[in-house]
Every structure is written in structure tokens, then in C-alpha cells.
């Protein structure tokens, strides 16, 4: 694996990267158009068929786990403590009251994270980095900048791999990475210093390698991979346009509000439940390794 891209034979994979960039932009704009949690939820659920289409459901859910941490924290802490709240909705532990306005604020924020996160994950997982660079160049982005973009995508897994080796190498020098939290903060230096050095060395090498292969030569550059806008892309783009217009109409002319306190409470519980499952799964994994399953 040399990037976050996961190869599959799917409709979403076949889309031109430019279409998918537009798609991410469209989702970001739509998400910021609505200040109604229900609409954010609709966006989120509406994107799920795309995940299904790209055949990456498992990987998608795995990457969302991490975002759930933020969502739970935002929903819970803002729901209780955000000062904009006035109308109490329900109470836990006797003193902590979730308020309607704060819950609306919190759920818009956290669902927005999920919505934009989903769009980004779909984009990154279904777009080959080289295709992205080519697509950018077709938009007249200079080659070197497109390449910078591309290499950033590709260097992340390399750094992750090196980080693992450095971690092992430092443990071999008796660094206790499983010590208490204060110790661990101190241990960031021995873990990051070699990593930085190695990354710089690698990038430096990369620049030499590129020059050896005539990277800075002027003129038109061709590519092995080709991206083409097909009828599928046009369909997709026009669909997005229609949706965007509808959204604009809905949010400015109609001022719709589908949110009820029931919806808020149930989504809060749903978030808690999902987070709980994630935690249980995580703990189970740790424990099973410890027991030696």
C-alpha cells in the first residue's frame, strides 16, 4: 500500500477526479448552507449509497470510528455546557441538563464533521493519487504543485511505516512506550526526532531521484494514466447542480426546520451507542491479544 487509495471496480472509482473534487466542494457548501441538524443527517444518510456503490463500506466505517470520538465529545460537552442553551430537554446524573439550543448547535457541528469526513473519505479512498495529480494539471495547476500534492498523499503511509520501525528501534533501547501518560509525553522526543530526520533524508533523496529522471525539464508532460470526463461524470455533475439549487431554495426561501427534540435526543443516544460499541470492540481486541487468543 502506498497511499490511502483502495482499488475497487466501481462506478465511483471510475468517476473523473475532478468530478469528485467538485463533489467534495458541493458537500462542504451544502453542509454549511444548513443550520438544521436534520438536514445534516439527511446529507449523511444520502451519501451512504455512494459508499455502498464504491464497495468500501468496511473501510469507511473503520475510518469513521476515529471521528466518532470528536462527535461524542462535542455532542456531550456542548449539549450540557454551551451557554446558548435555554430550553431543558432532559437530565442525566441529577444535575447535568441537555438544552435544546445547545444540542442543535452541537449536533450541527458534529454531523458536519461526519458529513465532510464522509465526502473526504469517499474522495481519498476512490481516487488514485496519480489521477488526482493529472486532474489538477488539467485544471492548469503547475506540474510541480500538482506533484507536491501527490507526494504528500504518498508520503503519509511511508512515514507511518517508518514511525513503526522507529518505535520498535527505540523500544529496543529500553524505552518503555507503555509507561504512564506523563512518561509517554516525554518519550515523544525519541520517537519523533529520528522520524523527522529520516523523513527529511527521504524527501531529500526523492528530490535527487526526481532530478535524475528529468523532473524539472520544461515542456508538456505526458502521463501513463489517463482521466476522461465521461457521460457518467456529466450525469453526476448535473445531479449535484440540481441538488445545490434545491438546497439554496430550501435554505433561503423556505427556512425549513425539521428538527425536533425527539430527533436530537435519539441522535445523541445513537451516537453514544455507536461510540460504546467502538469502545467495546477496541477493548475486546486489546484483551483478546493480552489473553493470547
Amino acid at each position: 500500500m502506498n497511499s490511502l487509495y483502495i482499488a475497487r471496480e466501481s462506478m465511483i472509482h471510475r468517476l473523473d477526479p475532478r468530478t469528485k473534487i467538485l463533489f467534495v466542494l458541493f458537500i462542504v457548501i451544502s453542509s454549511f448552507l444548513f443550520k438544521d441538524p436534520a438536514m445534516q443527517l439527511i446529507l449523511l444518510i444520502g451519501m451512504f449509497p455512494l459508499v455502498l456503490l464504491s464497495k468500501l463500506v468496511k473501510q469507511y466505517l473503520m475510518s469513521m470510528q476515529f471521528l466518532m470520538l470528536f462527535v461524542v465529545l462535542i455532542m456531550t460537552i456542548h449539549g450540557i455546557y454551551n451557554p446558548i442553551g435555554e430550553t431543558p430537554v432532559f437530565e442525566i446524573f441529577g444535575g447535568l441538563t441537555f438544552k435544546y439550543e445547545s444540542l442543535v448547535y452541537a449536533s450541527v457541528m458534529s454531523f458536519r464533521i461526519l458529513v465532510i469526513g464522509t465526502a473526504a473519505v469517499i474522495f481519498v479512498m476512490t481516487t488514485h493519487p496519480s489521477d488526482l495529480a493529472i486532474a489538477l494539471m488539467k485544471w492548469k495547476v503547475p506540474h510541480s504543485i500538482a506533484f507536491m500534492f501527490l507526494s504528500t498523499f504518498q508520503i503519509i503511509p511511508i512515514i507511518a511505516r517508518e514511525a513503526k520501525i522507529v518505535m520498535e528501534a527505540q523500544q529496543a533501547r529500553c524505552l518503555d512506550v507503555k509507561a504512564n501518560i506523563f512518561e509517554r509525553v516525554k518519550h515523544l522526543v525519541p520517537l519523533f526526532a529520528p522520524l523527522f530526520i529520516i523523513t527529511f533524508v527521504k524527501v531529500h533523496q526523492l528530490s535527487y531521484v526526481l532530478e535524475c529522471r528529468a523532473f524539472s525539464r520544461n515542456g508538456v508532460k505526458t502521463s501513463l494514466r489517463e482521466t476522461k470526463i465521461s457521460s457518467l461524470d456529466y450525469m453526476f455533475i448535473s445531479g449535484m447542480l440540481v441538488l445545490l439549487l434545491t438546497e439554496l431554495y430550501l435554505s433561503f426561501a423556505q427556512q425549513i426546520s425539521l428538527t425536533t427534540s425527539n430527533l436530537l435526543v435519539s441522535s445523541l443516544f445513537a451516537v453514544w451507542a455507536v461510540f460504546f460499541i467502538v469502545i467495546v470492540k477496541f477493548v475486546y481486541k486489546k484483551v483478546s491479544v493480552f489473553i493470547g487468543g
Binding site: I165, R173, L175, D176, V177, P194, I197, V201
Partner: peptide, 25 residues
């Protein structure tokens, strides 16, 4: 080895990595 920390085992078994840059800083 399954029950001990790597840090503790490392005091018994020293492992010299192939690339010294991973270890020295």
C-alpha cells in the same frame, strides 16, 4: 516474552537495527 514489556526484555536482548538512523538521534 508474551507477558513482559519490550522495554524490560530489551535489557536482556539488545537489538541493533539495520539502519542506525532509526535508533540514534
Amino acid at each position: 516474552t508474551k507477558k513482559e514489556r519490550i522495554a524490560k526484555l530489551s535489557s536482556l536482548v539488545g537489538y541493533v537495527f539495520q539502519n542506525p538512523n532509526h535508533q540514534t538521534f
